[in-house]
Design a binder for these strands. Structure first.
Lengths: 178, 178
DNA sequence: GTTGACTTGTTATCATGTAACATGAAATGG
DNA sequence: CCATTTCATGTTACATGATAACAAGTCAAC
């Protein structure tokens, strides 16, 4: 079954889902990917008591349109073009809200934001950032984090939050570059 | 043997060195710590063909004065006060040079820079950042990095550079806070 | 239907980072 | 020793990222 996938240029073949074992770099049904994330987001907010308002929903949708990280001002431009406020706090507030509720991530390395692709379970993933195409994948990082916490504990340091971000080449770009 | 340690407020007891197994949080002879880093830096530059100019040396010294990360503009103020240029590129160029040559690190999470305390061997350490006192320690992260690279390899992603930064409480601040 | 909490919008400002160009010092090579 | 080239330093100007403080609108709850 083949369908067109206007928002995700890497998609050529439709697979059945976009689950934890399918990284963002692999071809997948990005529409389903988006829909699922939005769906899980709604569920998560219901639990936590957060309100999914128009700006916030639209912000999440904008992030979800690609597997990329976007700068706050890039998001702001999109929001402004659609009739929302034109000032930085509009974007930052929506983005911060999404991050706080686990629906988006902040990429320290890029000073940018990306939609979380599997909200619904509390996680602090590692990120793989392709330096050629800017695409982004989340990786379960629990083992890496505990390894680090153990090392740190030897020095008496109590780890609270860990940032793990890898820069490199995704399969497609590695092939293209070689 | 007790001596005064004007630049490192945590130091009360002088130990013989500041080696790989002594994290920045532990009391140590910070003067020796500085001297050794400067020394190793010179050696490393000789190998690589980089030139240690006045601005660069001074920038490194400024970073070395504390086990903290400093913002580029904070460094710039210090440089400007000492007769160097007053414009941002002065600081950024010196800092970028130091980072490129492995003499300093950039802390993504803080948008700040810190001197590398053990240059001379190529390393991409993990960082422990105390959220209370802002002090900073480097941790050998080879095992953590390889764990991540292996995970990433399963997706076909080729990791090139990894950022690992942990935010938390150092022993002293944990005790003080509790 | 008014209170109170929250959301959205604004203005203004600050912090961080870079592009582009001019000048000056140091190594290279005749 | 001087000319050439390369690299370093300095500048102006600007781009990007982020937040404080305040005004006005929305919405649920009582």
């Amino acid at each position: 079954m083949i369908t067109s996938q206007p928002t995700c240029d890497k998609v050529t073949l439709v697979t059945d889902d976009c689950d934890r074992t399918t990284p963002a770099f692999a071809p997948h049904d990005h529409r389903a990917c988006e829909a699922r994330a939005l769906d899980e987001a709604a569920g998560r907010l219901a639990e936590q008591g957060g309100r999914m308002t128009p700006v916030r929903r639209r912000t999440l949708e904008i992030l979800l349109e690609s597997h990329r990280a976007m700068g706050a001002y890039e998001v702001l431009d999109r929001l402004a073009a659609e009739g929302f406020g034109h000032q930085p706090p509009v974007a930052y507030r929506a983005l911060d809200f999404l991050v706080e509720h686990g629906l988006a991530h902040r990429l320290q390395r890029l000073n940018a934001f990306a939609a979380c692709l599997h909200p619904g379970h509390d996680h602090a993933p590692a990120f793989l950032i392709c330096r050629a195409c800017d695409k982004l994948a989340e990786l379960p990082a629990a083992p890496v984090r505990t390894a680090l916490s153990n090392l740190a504990a030897e020095t008496g340091f109590a780890v609270e939050r860990v940032t793990i971000e890898a820069l490199g080449l995704c399969p497609a770009c590695a092939e293209a570059g070689a």
